[in-house]
């Protein structure tokens, strides 16, 4: 799914850049320097190459790295592909559980679970969960958070 999203995002940016380059060449405004017009095609091409490589590599790494785990008391997530981020959120401190699904995600029948606490720094996101499972988890978390809940701050 990340591959698809990446492809789409990169395609859009490439198209934009290409459009810009073509527009610059076609409009022929005098304030655009010559070198920008003559090498305008290079930007989208370079970016497309970069996009291809990134599309090939990043989602795989991310898939290998990203982990999540829900135990009785704590939600644990690991994210990142160059930098790493480990996050622990105790269930008793959960304020809200969001369960969202974008259109690409629906295509792949996966969903994103977002767990929010009283602190904006303590909110955790699990992407690419199986949709059914995400729903089950979000309901379970909501119930458990309600049971365990103290002040939650």
């Amino acid at each position: 799914m990340w591959t698809v999203e990446s492809v789409i995002a990169h395609a859009v940016v490439t198209a934009l850049l290409a459009g810009l380059a073509w527009g610059a060449a076609a409009a022929g405004w005098s304030w655009i320097p010559d070198w920008a017009v003559s090498y305008g095609w290079a930007a989208p091409v370079c970016y497309a190459l970069f996009g291809l490589v990134e599309t090939a590599v990043v989602p795989r790494v991310r898939y290998r790295v990203h982990r999540w785990e829900v135990t009785a008391d704590v939600i644990y997530t690991r994210t990142g592909w160059l930098g790493r981020e480990w996050q622990l959120v105790p269930v008793s401190r959960i304020q809200t559980v969001d369960h969202t699904q974008g259109w690409v995600e629906r295509m792949f029948k996966v969903a994103t679970l977002q767990v929010q606490t009283a602190s904006h720094a303590g909110s955790s996101t699990i992407e690419g969960l199986d949709a059914e499972r995400a729903r089950a988890i979000s309901e379970e978390l909501a119930v458990r958070a309600g049971e365990l809940r103290d002040d939650a701050t």
């Binding site: 930098g83 996050q87 303590g122």
Partner: peptide, 13 residues
């Protein structure tokens, strides 16, 4: 008061 922990590590770290 601690309601969670986050470790963050960049490539350089």
């Amino acid at each position: 008061a601690v309601i969670g922990w986050t470790w963050r590590q960049t490539l350089f770290q």
